[in-house]
Structures are given as C-alpha cells and as structure tokens.
C-alpha cells in the first residue's frame, strides 16, 4: 500500500535520511523505531509532503507522493497523527473533530458515532475548549480527528510520547483494535519494546539508515538489536 524506496532527505546538505526503503502492506501494522534524532519524524514529514526528498520514491496506492501538496496527499487517503499531537488550542473539541472532514470525505454519521464510541471522553468534553484536555485526552482527540477522515493508511508519530503508562496502554489497545477493523497503520515510536511486540513488522532506524527490520521474533533473536534499541541486557 505504501512503498518508500531509496529515500534520501537532507536539511541544508546535512543528511537526515539515507537510502531508506520501507513497505507497509494493506491491513498491516508496521512499526518504525529508533532513538531521538534518528530521522523518524523526517520520514513522516517527507511522506506528508512537508519536507523535500533529495532522491528516492514514495508510492501510495500506485500514486507517487513526492512533489504533491500535503493536503492532496491527505486527500488520497493518508491520515496523520503528528508528533506532539498538534491539537488546535483555540478550537473546541467538536471543532477540532470537524477538521477530520477537511480531507474531502464528507460527514458520515456512523463513522462519527463509531469514533466517538471509541473515545467516550471526547463526547463528555464535546463543546469545551480543546486546550483544557489532558495530554492523554489530546492524543485521543488527535487520533479521533484523523480517523474521521476514514484514512486507508494511518501514520502516527510518537503517539505515546509524554503519556502516563495507563494512557500508553490504551493508545496501543486502540491501534490493535483499529488494525482489526481494517485500518493500515504505520506506527512511529521510541517505545521500542511495545512497538516490536505490537507490530506485524518493525523497522529500526538509526542515524538516517534502516539498521534492521523484521517481525518481533526476528528482532528479538538478534542480540545487537536487543541491546542497542530495545534497552535489554543480554
């Protein structure tokens, strides 16, 4: 569904991604982990058309995404939950959710109800300012907002960042249940062990290079991976 091939990105000649190749198949939950500064967000932003690539290709559903405007990429069916959530603080919860309809998919009552059923807290604060929500609630709002657009591929950038452990659990539960409902997911995380355990396949990014990839069993069998990226002593 999404295929990134040989992708290189540089900020003012300083390389941030080098020859990154990655694939997300229909219905899969694919993880992308790596330490701070590895280039994870750069990859997300390049897919979103916010950062220019120096070489390589990004193809989604047969459409080349490179060179397309961000809003057109979203309109093709890619949903984003950006790093840091980026809730509109000056808007109410309801208005934030209405941004989910900006991608051109019209209002759909059953989707709306289903999404709100998944995040009951948003119903409670529906008319309140989004600025008053806690971090975890804002993350739910960011995910709900993206889901209302009924994306075929959902890309989340560090959704568990800064959340209390219980909230992290619920974010991962939501992702698993979304996948069960047929949503394809690319999950970018620093929470490596959780991601590897949850994802069908995980890519490990380090200093702009894909260092490894594989299923949870494959990655866990590699001692170097365990030590370097999963924080476990062998």
């Amino acid at each position: 569904m999404l295929r990134v091939e040989g992708l290189s990105v540089a900020y003012r000649k300083v390389p941030a991604l080098s020859e990154v190749t990655l694939e997300v198949g229909e219905g899969q939950l694919v993880g992308l982990i790596g330490p701070n500064g590895a280039g994870k967000s750069t990859l997300v932003k390049t897919i979103a058309g916010l950062v220019k690539a120096t070489s390589g290709s990004i193809v989604f559903d047969g459409n080349s995404l490179l060179g397309k405007a961000t809003e057109d990429i979203v309109r093709l069916g890619v949903g984003f939950v950006p790093e840091g959530r980026h809730i509109f603080q000056t808007l109410s919860v309801e208005e934030n959710l209405s941004l989910g309809y900006a991608s051109g998919r019209g209002f759909d009552a059953s989707t709306h109800d289903a999404v709100l059923d998944r995040f009951p807290i948003l119903r409670r604060y529906y008319r309140d300012s989004a600025a008053g929500l806690s971090g975890g609630e804002q993350q739910q709002l960011a995910i709900a907002r993206a889901l209302l657009a009924r994306p075929r591929l959902l890309i989340l950038d560090e959704p568990s960042l800064g959340l209390a452990p219980l909230m992290v659990d619920s974010v991962f539960e939501v992702l698993v249940s979304l996948q069960r409902d047929g949503v394809t997911i690319l999950l970018v995380e620093q929470n490596a062990s959780r991601t590897v355990a949850t994802a069908d396949r995980t890519y490990v990014l380090g200093a702009g290079h894909i260092r490894a990839q594989g299923t949870s069993a494959e990655l866990l069998s590699r001692e170097d991976m365990l030590e370097t990226y999963l924080g476990k002593k062998v």
Binding site: L50, T70, E71, F80, P82, H86, A102
Partner: peptide, 12 residues
C-alpha cells in the same frame, strides 16, 4: 492557529 497541521488534516 497552525497552518501546517490544518493542511495535514486536508485543508486546502
């Protein structure tokens, strides 16, 4: 408030 995020939601 945040033009980039608005575009990420599909606002033209």
């Amino acid at each position: 408030e945040d033009f980039t995020t608005a575009r990420l939601m599909g606002v033209r």
